[in-house]
Amino acid sequence: MLNARSVLVTGSNRGIGLELIRQLVGKSNRPEWVFATCRDPEGPRAQDLKNLAAKHQGVKILQMDTSDPSSIKAAATKVTEKLQGIGLNLLINNAAIVRPGTLESETAEDMAEVYKTNLIGSMLVTQAFLPLLRKSCQESPQKGMSCSKAAIVNMSSEAGSITNLLAWKLGHVINYRCSKAALNMLTRCQALGFAEDKILSIALHPGWVQTDMGNTAVKAPLPVDASVGAILSTLGRLTEKDSGTFVNWEGAAIPW
């Protein structure tokens, strides 16, 4: 069972990110601190998140654009101040973008932009919050690894599975697929690199979810609340044997 004292979710103003915040604060053993980051907290697209935060103490909305290193550092400084000496248990790198296109129409600009958010952004966010994740490990009496202790969850996609290439016939989206395949490699490297710190690192496919992003070609099959409910249940079951793996919302292994 997930029992994290502090959680940070990037890209939390809509879709999966917003639903993660909603379900986290609705838990009976909800985290004391829930940090919700998005690019434009004052904009109209963040209104649902602001309404949610107004009803729940301990939800802190922070400006963070994962394609802007200075905003990542500023957010990390604020989270460190709010936590007042305690660590961060769970970092969910959820922020992602996609640009439409085919194999023939893909551009260098779109590829670079998507990589900057989906891959490089996730890497920089993890680097910025690594001291807080390490602090959680040092403070925790728990043995082994868990998402309640210290974990990095990189929201990936089966669209980036080199074996499966989910929904290829519905959309090539080369920039998105390549960025998620690269994110999977980053996850493997983080699992190896942070093993001695006892920080769990995992790549997670949330399913093909009914969100603004998921509904582009046809209506996605999985409701967002069902996806997120299963994700939180899965995160509560992960142990050190799962670190460095690629799983779906229900915890089933996905081939790289």
Rank of each mutant, 00 (worst) to 15 (best):
N3T: 11
I21S: 00
Q190W: 06
T163G: 05
W168R: 12
L8F: 05
L18I: 00
M145D: 14
K116D: 15
T245Y: 08
N118M: 06
R30K: 14
I202K: 04
S157H: 06
G207V: 01
S201G: 09
R188G: 01
S243H: 07
N154K: 07
A217M: 10
A46M: 12
A54H: 13
K78Q: 15
L24T: 12
P100E: 07
A128L: 08
K116G: 09
I254M: 07
Y176L: 04
S122K: 01
A167R: 14
N3M: 06
M213Y: 02
H205R: 08
A253N: 06
P41R: 11
G26M: 00
V247K: 14
A74I: 07
D48S: 15
G26L: 10
A54R: 14
G251K: 00
Q138S: 15
T211D: 00
T234S: 13
P69W: 10
L170K: 09
F194W: 11
S161T: 10
Y176F: 08
Q84N: 15
S136W: 14
G87F: 13
V125I: 03
A95R: 06
K27C: 01
I92Y: 06
D225T: 13
N29G: 01
A150Q: 08
V247T: 13
E250A: 07
L8Y: 03
M64V: 06
R22D: 13
D197H: 02
Q84R: 15
G144M: 14
V98P: 05
A4V: 01
G160I: 10
S105P: 05
D212K: 00
T107M: 10
T216S: 04
E240V: 10
P206T: 00
G236M: 04
